[in-house]
């Protein structure tokens, strides 16, 4: 069971969190301008990285905040976490 560092609440058990998969998949601003293949790439295709992987999690049984976290998918070693939309955590995190 992973110990995940919520940038807002601190370290908590994995069971408090929901998983959101790969991070940084931006929704196209003009979907209608895309080809079917480009749309399929956005909707379905994933890098599924083996190694350092930036992903998103939500502290669903805690503060409810989404955040990003870098995790090595082979060792589960954790890297930096990040927040969305400039909602910065309190200093004492």
């Amino acid at each position: 069971m992973l110990l995940i560092h919520c940038p807002y609440c601190g370290p908590r058990d994995e069971t408090e969190f929901g998983y959101g998969g790969e991070a940084d998949i931006a929704r196209p601003l003009e979907p209608e301008a895309l080809s079917d293949a480009e749309w399929a790439d956005y909707v379905f295709m994933r890098t599924n990285t083996r190694g350092r992987f930036k992903e998103q999690w939500v502290h669903s049984h805690g503060c409810g905040r989404w955040f990003t976290m870098v995790r090595n998918t082979v060792t589960h070693e954790r890297g930096e976490t990040g927040v969305f939309g400039g909602v910065e955590p309190e200093a004492d995190g």
């Binding site: 939500v58 905040r65 939309g85 909602v87």
Partner: peptide
């Protein structure tokens, strides 16, 4: 609820 929050926080924080 999770769906709405995901979009609100990760894609449309504005």
């Amino acid at each position: 609820l999770n769906w709405l929050e995901m979009w609100l926080q990760t894609e449309w924080p504005e």
